[in-house]
Design a protein around this nucleic acid. Sequence first.
RNA 1: GCCCGGGUGGCGGAAUUGGUAGACGCGUCGGAUUCAAAAUCCGAUGGCAGCGAUGUCGUAAGGGUUCGAGUCCCUUCCCGGGUACCA
Length: 690
Amino acid sequence: KSEVGGYPVVRKPMRQWVLKITAYADRLLEDLEGLDWPESTKEMQRNWIGKSIGAEISFEVDEHDAEIRVFTTRPDTIFGATYMVLAPEHYLVDRITTEEQKDAVDAYKEEAEKKSDLERQELSKTKTGVFTGAYAVNPANGQRLPIWIADYVLAHYGTGAIMAVPGQDERDWEFAEAFDLPIVRTVEPPEDFDGKAYTGDGPAINSDFLNGLKIAEAKQKIIEWLEKKNAGQKSVNYKLRDWLFSRQRYWGEPFPIIHVDGKPKAVPESELPVTLPEVDDFQPTKSGEPPLARASKWVDTVDPETGKKALRETNTMPQWAGSCWYYLRYISPNFDGGPVDKGEEDYWMPVDLYVGGSEHSVLHLLYARFWHKVLYDCGIVSTKEPFQRLVHQGMILGEVEYTAYEHDGKMVSAEKAEGMENIKRVPLSEQDVEKKGDRFVMKGTDINVDAKAHKMSKSRGNVINPDDVVNTYGADSLRLYEMFMGPLEQVKPWSTKGVEGVNRFLNRTWRLFFGDHEEENTFRVSEEEPDTDQLRVLHEAIKKVTEDIEGMRFNTAISALMIFINEANQWDSIPRQVAEPFVLLLSPFSPHIAEEIWNRLGHSDSLAYETWPEYNEEYLKSDTIEYPVQVNGKVRATLIIPAEKSKEKEFVLAEAKKQENIQKYLEDSDIVKEIFVPGRIVNLVIKPKS
RNA sequence: GCCCGGGUGGCGGAAUUGGUAGACGCGUCGGAUUCAAAAUCCGAUGGCAGCGAUGUCGUAAGGGUUCGAGUCCCUUCCCGGGUACCA
C-alpha cells in the first residue's frame, strides 16, 4: 500500500535509465582512505559497496546441457557442498525442473513473486524452498547435488545461485536442517565449539587434497585447481548495484536524450539545457508513463543533426541530480560556459568542511562522490574527492518531558502501562518528579514515570521556533546556546533555561565593559597596563578558545569565555590590551554583541578584519605549581610548590612528607615506593609497620 | 541477529588520553538589595557521617591489570543510530 492514499503497490517491469556506479566501486572504496571523515561513516560506505573476493565456479547440471555458475567467498569449502540453490527468478529454473516437481516449483515461484522485499524479510526466520528434481555435479568430487529453489537466495546478487555448504554457513545449515539435507564439515571447529555452522578458521577436513590447509591457503589452492580444470576462476563481487536514475514525475531535470528511429541519442551540447515544458496536468498517468508524455508538442521534435523526426525522453531525473553537484555550482553560479568555472573550481575545491546529518552516510555522500569522480575523469574538476572533511551534526530534540500513566483513574508505573489499554498519559512538570535509584518517580511515590526528550515534531507539539527564541533572547543567545549545549555531533535535548543561562552570560559581558546602565558614565575599559594576573587570564582564554575552535569543541570554548568573564568581573577596570583580544575571541560565537562592543571601543571598522589573537606561553606560566599528594593512590593533601623548584623530585617529596595530613599516615607505616610525576602528582605507597 | 556509537550529580555536559572526577551552564537552597517583585550580586550544592578538620562511598553492574582506572582488558545489562538472508 502506498504511504499517501493507501493504494495497492504493484511491481511492473519498465525500461529505465541506470547510472553505472558499479564501474566506480573500487575507486569509491579506495579513495575513502584519504578522507578526513568519521570512521563509522567510512565503514558504512565500505559495507554498502560490499566488495568481496572469491571465486566463480561452474556446476554442470546432470542430464542437461546447462551449467550453474555460482559465486562464493569460500571456494575452499567446495567439498562440503551438499546441495545447490537457485533464486526463484533464476533463468534455468524452468529448464531443469522435472515433471513431478513442476507444480510445486511453479507454486513457489508465484508465491515468491507476490512477496514484497519486506515480506521476504519478515519471514526470514524459517527457511522455505522447493526441490526442482534436477541434480548438479560438484566439479571437485563428482558428487550429485540436488538443486533447490529458495527465496533466501537473491536473484540480483552474485549469479543468483549458490552452492550450499551447511557445515560453514549458518543460512545453509538452517535450510539443510529444515529439509533434512546432508551436512558435511570441511573446516575442523575448535574442540569447545558447540554451535552449528562453523565460520571461523581452522584446518580443512573431508576435503581431499585440501585437508590440513588453513582457509587462506585452501582458497588459493582450490582456485588454481579450478582454473586448471576450467571449472572456475577468481572473482570479485560487490553489493553495490547500478543506480536507477529515472523517475516518472514531472518535477525533475529532463534527460537530454531524444529517440531517433527508436534509438536513444544525446542532445548536442549547443541545444542544452533541455527545460521542462509548461503542462496543465502534473498527475501521474494511468498507464504509468511519465506525465511529460502528455506534452506531445514538446515530445515531438526534430534531431538537430539529421533533421529527422525525433521523440524526447519523458522520464525525469530524481532529486539526486541536483544534490550531487550543487556544491560545484555554488562556486560560480553565474558561469554559463559549463558546470563550473575552472579557475574558481581550482581555488575552492575540495570542500574543506561538510556538515551534514548521518542519515546521508551512504546515499547522498556516496552518489556525490561518484558524480565527482565522473566529472574528474571528464576533466571538469581537479580533485578526486568532493568533501575533504565531514562532520555529522547531532539533532536537537525537544525539551525533556515527564510522563505519568493513568489507568482506570489510578496512576501506574510506566513499564506496566506499556501494552495496557485505556491508558491516559499525564504530562508532569519537573517539580512533580524525583529521582529514585536510576529512574524517575512521581514525587513521594514509587510510581515510575517516563523521562525522555523526543524529536521535535508538529504532532507532538514540542517544536521550538528559532524566531521566537531570537525575539525573546536575541540571535546571539540562540547561536551561543546551540554551541554551548554539548558536542556538535551529539543528539541533545533543548532547554529554554539553558538559553537564559547564556543570555545572562552575554548580559554580564556587556556590563563588564559598560557597567550598569543606571549608573552614569561607567565605561569600564581603562588605558592602564595589564598586570600579570590579567594577562594570564586572557592568554589562557586565547589558548583554550583557539584550540577548541580548531577541534570544533565549541561548548568548551564558550565555557572558557565564561571563565574569563567570571575572573574579569572581579577587576576594578578592564585594560584595553585585555579587553580587545577578548572581544575578538567572543566574536565568532556572538558576532552582534562583539561587533557592538568593538565599535564602542572606538573602532570604526568591523572586527571581522582584525587578526585572531595569539597566546603567549610566557603569560601562561604560574609562579607556583599545585601537587596533589596521594597515599596509596588516594589524595590526602595538596602542595603548593614554587614553579622553579617544581621539577625537583627530592624537594617535592620532602615537602609532601612534611604535610600534616600526610604525616598522620606515615607514622605507623613504611614507605614502600615513591611515585613522582613532574608537574603532575606525588604518590606514596606505604605498608603498615610489621 | 549483526555493525557502529554511548551510559559520569536533579539536568546539559567537563576531565590535558592512565595522574586531584564533576570545569562551565541550568536547577535547587541560603543570604544581600527592594515597600514588594523582576533584574542583579554574594555564598552553598555528588551521597553518607561529622559543628569542623576530616573520613567514607561514588563515573551502568561484576571482575582484572596498575603505585594510581571515568579512561586499558574480560564478562553482563541498558540506551541510541544504521542494516537486513550479499553466498
